[in-house]
Design a binder for these strands. Structure first.
Lengths: 217, 217
DNA sequence: TAGATTGTTAATCGATTAACAATC
DNA sequence: TAGATTGTTAATCGATTAACAATC
């Protein structure tokens, strides 16, 4: 394994957004794109685009910018889209179901291959095209599918135990929607996404802005 | 209006998480909490907690740490929880409905007061306790409710127009789930939350970690 | 060529961490 | 007092921005 240069979370996020933006562009006739065009589509600076692409070793031409198709391919490869990534989701409540719907057949390489729940009403069914199992089968199903990614949408009280079982079964990346700090081994990547926190943040700045508007009027 | 010290997005996020963590603590007997305890609950460092609390002017005691109830009150006040914030949601698909369910009666001060959609099947109904309207009524309903915050869960193609109408009606903060860079006036705060991007990031690092595991074995 | 863009370095900025005197 | 924690400053770290020679 080559000692890959350490790439930060932020760069990965931006690369992912570049790819999404390019996907939409490539429907058209356009074959090349300049850093400032891609930058505008993604809400970043042109210099940042150039630096990010440089960091994954992709070059453009000073006359024509970047080749859209080559760039899309390079970014996809870098992000590991060469092969399918298998994802499981635990907790098939409203949010879980919405996420199943969100990802099924929407993403080229992230395949949600199984859902889990404790509620008998939700197990042994196919929801949004995804087969759902009892939590007790997690170890077996995750291992059989070689799933590397787990999404946790269970209630807070069950999140830690869920994470432990996922990790035990071989998952090395977790997207956690429960408002708990998960304790996991060092080789497991955890991203916390607390929707309440995000909305509180928006509400805070909305309030600030509304006040400012009122004052300047 | 006093010229408040500029507080960064990250600090606001952490304050929101401190408050959530304290909410859960305060059920117990404990009356005080040390910076390192709160830090562990939220996955940050103790020094960071101390600095954040200092930045909103909250003091503890070197003997007993921070008073939980006072701290919760101070953080809540700072985040603007003194009065209800009214939120509207546009796009009542699976994700939109999950978010309605997520927020209704779950948050003390963020009140989702209306939903909007273009689909007739979804309008003039109450979904998860929230009244849903046709998009054509957006301006009127948002203004009547004095909603400051808008959540956008419409398809990508409709996101920009939705944002414009929300802003026109008086919204100053937007939480955008559509994978588009919204163009809005300077006084409007926009937070983009692209769930695909987040999952791609998790998948990337999950892959890295899985490789590393395989190599070190 | 002239003009615009890329690749890349240096300068800036902001946030985190280390450290420690003051405090209880 | 002795020991632990707070408040706060200085040092470090990392990421962004500015700038510009090289390129087309």
């Amino acid at each position: 394994m080559t000692e890959s240069t350490k790439i930060s979370k932020k760069v990965i996020e931006r690369l992912s957004e570049y790819r999404t933006a390019l996907d939409e562009q490539s429907a058209g006739e356009q074959r090349n794109i300049f850093s400032h065009e891609l930058a505008r589509l993604c809400g970043v600076t042109a210099a940042q685009v150039r630096r990010d692409l440089m960091s994954i070793g992709f070059s453009g031409s000073s006359a024509k910018g970047y080749d859209i198709n080559e760039l899309k391919q390079t970014v996809s490869d870098f992000l590991g889209f060469g092969e399918e990534r298998r994802v499981v989701l635990v907790g098939i409540g409203h949010l879980g179901r919405a996420l199943l719907d969100f990802f099924v057949n929407r993403h080229p390489k992230l395949v949600v291959c199984a859902g889990f729940d404790v509620n008998e009403m939700r197990i042994n069914r196919v929801i949004h095209g995804v087969r759902c199992y009892a939590v007790s089968e997690m170890e077996r199903v995750v291992a059989e599918n070689r799933a590397q990614v787990g999404i946790i949408t269970v209630p807070e009280s069950a999140a830690q135990e869920t994470a432990e079982r996922l990790v035990e079964a071989g998952v090395t990346g977790v997207l956690n929607f429960a408002p708990v700090q998960l304790r996991v081994p060092g080789h497991v990547f955890v991203e916390n996404l607390n929707i309440s926190t995000v909305l509180e943040k928006v509400a805070y700045f909305a309030g600030l802005n509304a006040d400012r508007e009122r004052v300047t009027k």
